[in-house]
Design a protein around this nucleic acid. Structure first.
Lengths: 215, 215
DNA sequence: TTTGTTTTGTGATTTGTATCACTAAACTTT
DNA sequence: AAAGTTTAGTGATACAAATCACAAAACAAA
């Protein structure tokens, strides 16, 4: 099977609602790329000239401020795209976010011009873009709810659940320090809260790993 | 001058980039409505079947959670629309937000069906929708930054500046309790912080009014 | 003018989280 | 195996913000 054929399969599998003509155009004008785990795909301040369609793997999208604070906004799974890269690409603006792969990831880079052309040409693309905006907006609102209304133990629990769902595993390979960064708190706080949850039998702790039980 | 003519003028003034054909269609299919100050335009959980184009006045958009907590996300000025009402309308979903007028406000309600039809028909509409998503997303990110990274005194200052800009006045007619609600904190905290700012000569306090000076 | 209501001011106390300081355990490298 | 490095555990302390408690203005209504 040719490489083109493989990419075509991946694209169709991840984006089953796309029309044949659209799939063809994506393959023609898009650029296929792979990234290793923990690669940084995009930095804050970088200019965006294309949108990423996730084919495989998993991406974490962060917000960063000027003092180096960061927090996790949401995950991007196959079949999804980053709404921000769409709007920034459309406006030729600098990215206000940072994106990092969680696992090995395959993406298709689509240039801005094609993007707006397809809006009127393919109903399925229009719907995909609208749906992307809607779901990213929703996820951002949920993140905002958590930061605004919830205490750190609730936020940690939500974080673990979301990581579990996104990574489809019960064993998260991550250090307390990394979790603290992504929740914008300190390592000690996370260690203490995790210890409490372990005592309640909800998870068990190992070096660089958290085994989720009753979550 | 006829009422239709007045609405037409308002629409053209607030949305100068819309093509003539688009303006005509908005006037044909849209529904003109006015609201008093402090009217609730939309409640959490309500279903949305149309998007609001703001013609005049000012709207505050809030996020609410299940326990009745709320906080201010952003203002909507003439020439703007709520990105959330667009996506929810497109997906026939319940609203995750609450919207309230600050002053007397005139809007044009546009049904969902027209909205998606115009995407391919009018370039200016497509650009407006994209721009609406982009700017709402940006504002939401700024709000999120504040909640996640800033302390209450910084957040209060940002709140006052934003209110000043949106309302184009140096005298905000609002109680400490209301500010506390919109920042999701308690009245005492706001009273104390405002007192400190008054002592620094940055504003002066009156009953139900804050006079901004060096902000 | 008196009474009632809303808004604001302020001390005292509590709570959640952040920070500091240090130890211990788990891996890695030499 | 020893030394070094990273990750985790934990007490002590500091601090911003939340809560409690109550008084004093400012205004509205009787």
């Amino acid at each position: 099977m040719s490489i083109q054929q493989l990419h075509d399969d991946l694209l169709r599998k991840s984006y089953p609602l796309f029309e044949d003509g659209l799939i063809d155009e994506i393959e023609e004008t898009g650029e296929y790329r792979t990234f290793q785990a923990n690669d940084v795909l995009m930095r804050k301040g970088q200019f965006i000239r294309s949108t990423m369609l996730v084919l495989n793997g998993l991406i974490k999208v962060y917000r960063e401020d000027d003092e180096g604070n960061e927090f996790l906004m949401y995950y991007l799974k196959p079949g999804e795209a980053c709404a921000l890269s769409m709007v920034c690409a459309a406006k030729q603006e600098a990215s206000p976010i940072m994106a990092k792969t969680v696992a090995e990831t395959e993406v298709m880079l689509v240039p801005v011009d094609s993007m707006s052309e397809w809006m009127s040409k393919y109903k399925s693309w229009y719907q995909f873009v609208i749906e992307t905006y809607r779901s990213r907006f929703d996820e951002l609102l949920i993140t905002l709810d958590n930061v605004a209304f919830r205490s750190m133990d609730e936020r940690l629990e939500f974080y673990l659940k979301r990581a579990k769902d996104a990574q489809k595993t019960n064993t998260l390979e991550i250090s307390h320090q990394e979790i603290a960064n992504e929740l914008n708190t300190s390592r000690e706080v996370i260690s203490r809260l995790l210890k409490k949850m372990e005592q309640k039998g909800r998870l068990s702790l190992h070096r660089n790993a958290i085994e989720l039980k009753n979550l």
